[in-house]
Amino acid sequence: MADVRDALMVGKTSDGKLVRRPLSPHLQVYKPQITSALSIFHRVTGVALSVGTLMLVWWLVAAATSDAAYATASGFIGSWFGMLLLFGWTVALWYHFCAGIRHLFWDAGYGFELPTVHLTGKLVLAATVVLSVLTWIVIFAVR
């Protein structure tokens, strides 16, 4: 039996011939490039930040629960393992933040030329490093 979704896979060439639309190349046969690597980083950091919100929720709920619950939460967050998670979280946050702004420019119709795409990609990486380092300098400075 034919699947109705097949209808979406069918297109017409300019001379009117019906053709099956091509699928995008699979990862395994696609040469890694800065564009594809940064795209997947955006996704990976997004998922990682989603998991990271658990720590934020825990902290807020604990603050609203009791002194003991808050002591447990802030004790974990302040431990070496909690700080390690926070470090990863800040790097993922700054990457997703900068790459997200790059996406907003694309959505507004700017920055599609290949040299620009490569330049903004490198800028996002550089900004991630600089902002992450700055964040931790500030964290230790106000401690």
Partner: peptide
């Protein structure tokens, strides 16, 4: 995304300022 640009910056700044705060201070 647009809303989260300023909100994230505000949140991050606030969290850094709240390091080592007691529950009462956070509340």
């Amino acid at each position: 995304s647009l809303a989260l640009i300023p909100l994230t910056l505000w949140m991050l700044g606030s969290m850094i300022g709240l390091q080592g705060a007691t529950r009462a201070q956070v509340a």
